[in-house]
Amino acid sequence: MISVLNTIDTGHEDMIHDAELDYYGLRLATCSSDNSVKIYDIKSGTQTLAADLKGHFGPVWQVAWAHPKFGNLLASCSYDRKVIIWKELGEWSKLYEYTGHESSVNAVAWAPAEYGLILACCSSDGSISILTYNQDGSTWDVKKVPGAHAIGVNSVSWCPAISADLSLDPLTNKDAPKRLVTGGCDNLIKIWKEQGDQWIEEKRLDMHMDWVRDVAWAPSLGLQRSMIASCSQDKRVVIWSSDDNISWTPTILNTFDDVVWSVSWSLTGNILAVSGGDNKVSLWRENADGQWLCISEVAKGLGQTTNDERSTL
């Protein structure tokens, strides 16, 4: 039985575009078309507004929490072409502002904490930026990959630090290469690998027939297998799996009734949440035979009274 634990009234003046829970699941960051980012403390059924961050001058698309060992850091990206990294030191303030993109920045993602403090950003200008914090000088090094996806990059996700790789045992070898996956308006999914001080395109995955909206690299549980979920305007969700991070096998999870906007893995990588234009969130799980089954679904109510806050089976 699933039940609504609490309802958070965000008080945003416009549409919400992203809501992310921090590492411990105790804080929620939201961002909205009203140009603001808000942070809530969630404690056993109640929530309090901890901060209202104003610094963007356009709709804020996405927020991302860094690993707490770097302190309380939040990155946000916006239509105003900026990426802002916020830091809590008593109060929340701007730590760094990145203005290297020429168009709307659609997504941001922190690298696995093992690599240090690294942020990947992707933009409608077709490029990806990798921002690396340099401890000694307290500066940020920027590496930009132009022309990553024609027309624009919609989503980015990092490969876990411990991941499948034939040549290197990732558990013992910290030098296993860094990888990330991006999805774009050219209907492609690309896997990027860091080589020396450059990011090179390692693989392109061609399967979707329309813009790729979201990509998500599954958390690794030490199994020698990588998985990436991707979703697209073509209404399909595809699971890509690989034993060596080089050759990838696609499995179509499902074809939905509408555009699929986001895919998100649970912490342990065993459940995938899919949500889209059909106003439904469905949860999927792989069975022992490698088939993907829908285990539950949360849908918009049909003809229900609006004050019925409790979900029904």
């Binding site: 088939q291 829908c294 539950s296 679904e297 229900q304 806050e309 979900s311 029904t312």
Partner: peptide
Amino acid sequence: QAVKRVKTFILPD
């Protein structure tokens, strides 16, 4: 395992 046990939860409209 082929038996589907999908549960749908309906939310306020």
